[in-house]
Design a protein around this nucleic acid. Structure first.
Length: 429
RNA sequence: GUGGGCGUAGCUCAGCUGGUUAGAGCGCCAGGUUGUGGCCCUGGAGGUCGAGGGUUCAAAUCCCUUCGUUCACCCCA
């Protein structure tokens, strides 16, 4: 074995059994989001690099060190999408959706790419679904988006997750808070960790959720951001909380939750599963009132979230909420001897055209070996075509569950099968 | 990018302080039944012990390097 080529670091193959779970997951998500009035949008997997630089923010970790960026043959700088919001906003502007309706509700689902060191719950190619409600300013929109995430998880059977909430204010009040942070913390700059010292003038808000004890101690001297919210932002945030209270959804206020993307304003939130390991956020999102304008569109507000599908699957698995899914055929057609292979092939084809899921046995193998395959395949019924019965234009139908079987005329087979099972697929000619 | 754990059969793993042809369970294939699966029994195939180098009479075992993987930090879904 020389130079075995494996899937690149941080990527993985979804094998057939697992793909069943993904299909279920994706269709469940789509169904719920459609029922909440969101339309699916499928944007390209790659975009012009500038979109993310402008949209996510030059000083974010994603843009600084995590993007898969390359020059295409026309020397354009291209980046595999690291997140979904910026592309959706780009498409929203490009298709002038702001002129179609005051509020646009979109969702996406697909792979994202970030060049980080993999660990539990983190991959280089991972999958997210997310919703974006663009054009709505009211706290109702924030609450609705949070509720959507909450209800979707609930529908999947996840009822004990924590919602963490905060407001990071608008550009004005955030600036006031940043100034307060910087002036207080500069005095104790030597107590901060090296990255936080850099953050001090680059992105002081990020100091808040640093885990280093000394940084935590320093930060605790600064009053929470709530104290700096302007009246409008304060009112907005309280409005969101009141709506959540009204529908009796529990949340935790996390004054230190700031999130890493530059575009957030006012409401930010995360939904956490503590059993997930270090990367425990199932979804994260918030309001991004300045983003559409920053990307070259009109000054319309927006709110949304992104949810990690791998983490969702892990959580469902942990809590035993994944459904039992089977890719098993319904019927196993078993030719006894090579000379009957063509007959079996014809029968299998005809049954498939009626919508049955059919597996065909290998006629060169013994009955015993083929029955073993049939058993392993999970088929409910096995149709045995052997010399004896075929000479009399008969076949044997065996019910795998209890082992019972009977010989019937080949002409009666369709009727016999129909009396036992119904096709899982569609009939076609 | 930094730090720790782990790389032995398809899978999960044993293999003590270096010592003959490297093992188990499961899985796979075949047989026990000239045409009957699941349970049982018997047999078989399958490993250059991640790779490279070093120490030694002798290395899966000790040392170095490297690659992969995993967990954590940073950050995030």
């Amino acid at each position: 074995m020389i130079n075995l080529i494996t899937a690149p670091r941080g990527t993985y193959d979804i094998m057939p059994d697992r793909a069943l779970v993904w299909q279920w997951m994706e269709s469940t998500i789509r169904q719920v989001l459609l029922s909440y009035g969101y339309g699916e949008i499928r944007t390209p997997i790659f975009e012009h690099t500038e979109l993310f630089q402008r949209g996510i923010g030059e000083t974010t970790d994603i843009v600084e060190k995590e993007m898969y960026t390359f020059a295409d043959q026309g020397k354009r700088s291209i980046t595999l999408r690291p997140e979904g919001t910026a592309p959706v906003v780009r498409a929203y502007i490009e298709h002038k959706l702001y002129g179609v309706a005051p509020v646009t509700k979109l969702f996406y689902l697909g792979p994202m790419f970030r060049q980080e060191r993999p660990q539990a719950g983190r991959f280089r190619q991972f999958h997210q679904f997310g919703v974006e409600m663009i054009g709505a300013e009211s706290p109702v929109a924030d609450a609705e988006v949070i509720l959507l995430a909450h209800d979707l998880y609930h529908q999947l059977g996840l009822t004990d997750l924590e919602i963490h909430l905060n407001s990071v204010g608008c550009a004005q009040c955030r600036q006031a808070y940043k100034t307060a942070l910087t002036s207080t913390l500069e005095a104790v700059a030597d107590e901060l960790c090296t990255t936080c010292r850099l953050r001090l003038d680059r992105n002081p808000l990020r100091l808040l959720d640093c885990k280093s004890p000394s940084c935590q101690a320093a930060v605790s001297k600064v009053p929470p951001i709530q104290d700096y919210l302007c009246p409008d932002c304060d009112h907005h945030f309280k409005g969101v909380l009141a709506l959540l209270d009204q529908v009796k959804v529990k949340y935790k206020l996390s004054p230190k939750l700031v999130r890493g993307l530059d575009y957030y304003s006012r409401t930010v939130f995360e939904i956490i599963n503590h059993d997930l390991g270090a990367q425990n956020a199932l979804c994260g999102g918030g309001r991004y009132d300045g983003l559409v304008e920053a990307c070259g569109g009109p000054a319309v507000p927006g709110v949304g979230f992104a949810s990690g599908i791998e983490r969702l699957l892990t959580t469902l698995e942990q809590k035993g909420k994944l459904p039992e899914l089977s890719g098993a055929p319904q019927l196993f057609v078993l030719p006894l001897g090579e000379q009957l292979t063509a007959v079996a092939f014809e029968l299998a084809t005809s049954l498939r055209r009626q919508g049955f899921f059919v597996e065909l046995g290998n006629g060169t193998k013994s009955l015993k070996a083929q029955l073993k395959s049939a058993h392993k395949s999970g088929a409910a019924l096995t149709v045995i075509i052997g010399e004896d019965e075929w000479q009399a234009q008969q076949v044997t139908v065996k019910i795998m569950g209890d082992g019972s079987q009977k010989r019937i005329a080949a002409a009666e087979l369709q009727k016999e099968i129909a009396s036992l099972i119904s096709p899982l697929g569609k009939k076609y000619q």
